[in-house]
Amino acid sequence: MGYTVSVRLSGYRNLVLSRLGQGVLVIFLAYVLSFIVVSVLPGDAITNALHDPQSGLSEEDIARIVAFYGLDKPVLIQLLLALGRFVTGDLGISLQSGLPVTDLVFDALPSTTFLALTALILALVLAVAIAVGVHLLPSGAAGILRSVPSFFLSVPNFVIGLVLISVFGFTLHTFTITEPNAPVATFFAALTLAIPVSAPLAEVLISSLDVEARQDYALVARSRGLSRVNVFAQHLLKPSALPSVTMVALLIGELLGGAVITETIFGRNGVGTLVQRSVGAGDQPVLLAVVVLSAVVFVLVNLIADLSVPLLDPRTSVTKKKKAVVS
């Protein structure tokens, strides 16, 4: 037994190392790609932004920024300069305010993180409630519940937000839009973000529960006298939850993307509104930083998910055994 355990562990270590390597590569490539998008595509946004009379930058500031980014040099050199800074953790200077990008982003981060985490929890609660309802409620109610994710997927984020504000803010006065950081307002902002995210999650849960419920073992468990609720709780839940772990990780990006709209509508200060302001001002270094930060978060979360699923699921042997096709 001792031998097999060590083989398993070394196999897992290899998996961890290779996934880590891939993650670092993806972040690096994400940076290069976004750099290309903001620098090489037509429309010289940076120069425009710098010479925007509203930016309030002095001639010296502009000269400093031009020298810093190497804007008078070829694009390839700019990319190399940027990469050099990137590996040392320096994300550059904002074109709009002249402040370090890192400061701007990290100032905005806590509010967005709080919003996204609240939304994630809400989305999980919604998704699980829908999936459990579909499986345990009588067929009529379950059928209606089954179409809820599809409806959630068809309503744009900004419509949800505006409807919630209109109903709970203006009509019912549950919260006031002028205090966006109050707990109730935060709850509704998070709900806005959570609804579109809960839909795919609920769908994955429902369909994997469907698949598991059709398996022989569910029938055998019932033939052993277990009630439907017990079969559901003791047998179906765990194997159905495993695919959802992967799905949750994939949806992290949705939360970050959705924050742009949600924060704008609810008037919250965060990474989303920072993005919106930077787009308006053509402040590309800030955009670049946010994109890369999102990629880092996404890669990290997915790394954790990918590495934890094999530990949770006894079927996936962590040693990569190649199975040959043998008759």
Partner: peptide, 18 residues
């Protein structure tokens, strides 16, 4: 279970894999 026992076709899928 107590009075009526059931043995399914494919033993490979008749037990919960996790």
């Amino acid at each position: 279970g107590t009075e009526l026992g059931y043995i399914p076709q494919d033993p490979g899928t008749a037990l919960n894999a996790v």
